[in-house]
């Protein structure tokens, strides 16, 4: 059991931490922590959906090194990100910013929820208004009562 747990833990933990090579790591742990944070938000542009912190791609490595160089040279986290965006565009950010060109991306889920709610309301309303079911079902008229009674009587009288 213990062995199994160890194997599982080792397998799971080995996924995220492998890309950064020992030679890249900055000696100052505070700067290194900032570099890791910045790297996690930057896309490895050749692998589409990995951050440069996770990717083993050559270009991702070079971008990690550049991030560390800039941080060591005194750039703020925002300045480093800005530099990358000025070179690769918003695409380099794993979390796209909220601006005119990304309104569709960010707002369409709300639009679709709104549409779905409107459709559901419409269906619900129509059910309520319809003669079948719902609390607003109309009372039967005297004539209708009489016809139902006649049909029931007829059925009961004929036997089965």
């Amino acid at each position: 059991m213990k062995t199994l747990l160890t194997i599982i833990l080792l397998t799971v933990s080995s996924f995220s931490a492998l890309a950064v090579e020992p030679s890249e790591i900055l000696s100052d742990p505070a700067l290194e922590a900032r570099a890791r944070e910045v790297s996690k938000g930057l896309r490895c542009v050749v692998c589409q959906n990995q951050s440069i912190d996770e990717s083993n791609a050559d270009l991702a490595r070079d971008m990690r090194v550049l991030v560390r160089e800039r941080i060591s040279a005194g750039d703020s986290n925002a300045q480093v990100v800005e530099y990358m965006v000025s070179r690769y565009g918003d695409y380099v950010l794993l979390d796209p910013p909220f601006k005119a060109s990304t309104y569709v991306l960010w707002l369409s889920p709300f639009l679709f929820i709104g549409l779905a709610l409107a459709a559901a309301m419409g269906i619900y309303r129509r059910r309520e208004a319809s003669p079948v079911g719902g609390e607003k079902a109309q009372e039967l008229s005297v004539e209708e009562q009489r016809r139902i009674q006649a049909l029931l009587d007829e059925d009961g009288g004929g036997g089965s």
Partner: peptide, 13 residues
């Protein structure tokens, strides 16, 4: 060798 110019030009491949 370390993609300095490549990143400056925003090169992907």
């Amino acid at each position: 060798p370390e993609s300095k110019a490549a990143i400056a030009f925003g090169v992907y491949g």
